[in-house]
Design a protein around this nucleic acid. Structure first.
Lengths: 210, 210
DNA sequence: GTGCTTCGGTTATCGCCGTTACCCCATGGT
DNA sequence: ACCATGGGGTAACGGCGATAACCGAAGCAC
């Protein structure tokens, strides 16, 4: 883009690192395809030659991972924000679920990389990621535990949190992977899912109501 | 592999087509990675040069799609088999759900391509695929309808089928995408999910039991 | 000021990929 | 005997991720 990129002064070589991250993120958002975010494309956008990328990132996977990791942080903030301030812990959980799906659909390519792709990361990144994942999962477990303490849930917090994650992920990932399937309106689908989670889908007896 | 591949006789040029399909499938199963199934690797395995592949498949996507499409057929047969022969339509549905997850986990790379990847197909393939997908989804709707007719379900068949798909897909795809997450044993997880779908996760009142 | 190190980035290149244009030759029909 | 055609092969293009080797300017010691 800008053919004249000034060389960074001595101490601030890390400045390029940020520019690379932002260029990669912008490219990911604009093209909506991980494949379009090539090392060459990113370098071109920053106004730098491809090998320069490797001064700041070990490989392409590391770069993409870091791009998504940033988004991951915002993801958590968003979930926390949407999940707090509810008097009813069950409502808080449902709000978190809505926010999860909403965020995933807002950044489908990030979600794809983080939760739908093959994660061949370096052991170090992998450890970081597992740690972050575990942390955020445990935040969910905490929210679920409030429901358990209030006697509003039928199982233990770990199990319920796992189920909630799989369900919200199921909606999010299928909507991303199969955008042309004749889905009902997203809001309705989400509410139906939440209703299913809350009350179940089947009636225990043929003649029972609710 | 075999350096001496006899040339196919006149009418049976399509024989190579099958060999290519089987080589690609074997490669996919052995390596467990879509990336490892390169045109060159497949050609090498068959004992043929890369351009020969293009006599039978328009491009790599078409080849991979066809490989997975075969598996898709077996997938449906398996689901049908596991879903039939149940007196209780709800049990039939649960059995189908178990089979879905089991099959997906047995062929994770196929499942990945079919349900978790970016599907950039030609319009023709896409149409075929949508049709097949719609057909199998409608089979599910049929099974659900039996539950509706028996008065065992709280919503309409289309909605319930959509929910069931998203849930089973959620379990399958997360287990595939995050194999190192500290999941509970798969069987237990599946049963918990099915139980959640059946009865719901939350209790309507703090003092209610089941 | 002069020399040296070191940092920020480039040039050139490798090997792999999907894909295409073009050629070749054995076979079967006539 | 001919020759068209189908089943392949040869060579090559452009793009990719990645690496090795280099280079020039900025800072530091003296």
């Amino acid at each position: 883009m800008s053919p004249e990129r000034p060389r960074s002064p001595r101490g601030e070589g890390a400045r390029l690192r940020d520019e690379i991250l932002e260029a990669a993120e912008a490219l990911l958002l604009e093209t909506g395809s991980e494949d379009a975010v090539s090392i060459r494309a990113v370098a071109d956008r920053v106004g730098v030659t491809p090998p320069s990328i490797y001064r700041h990132f070990a490989d392409k996977g590391t770069l993409l991972f870091e791009v998504c990791d940033r988004q991951f942080d915002r993801f958590h903030e968003y979930l926390d924000a949407k999940g707090s301030g509810h008097a009813d812990p069950v409502e808080a959980l449902k709000a978190t679920g809505r926010a999860y799906i909403e965020f995933g659909l807002s950044y489908p390519e990030h979600y794809r990389i983080m939760f739908m792709g093959r994660s061949d990361l370096t052991p170090q990144q992998y450890e970081d990621h597992v740690l972050a994942e575990h942390e955020s999962f445990m935040a969910l477990v905490g929210s679920v535990q409030e429901c358990v303490d209030a006697g509003r849930i039928r199982t233990d917090a770990m199990e319920a949190a796992t189920l909630l994650w799989t369900v919200t992920h199921g909606v999010t990932s299928l909507l991303i992977a199969k955008p042309n399937f004749p889905w009902p309106p997203v809001e309705a689908l989400v509410e139906h899912v939440l209703d299913m989670v809350e009350h179940g889908l089947f009636t225990p007896r043929p003649d029972a109501d609710v």
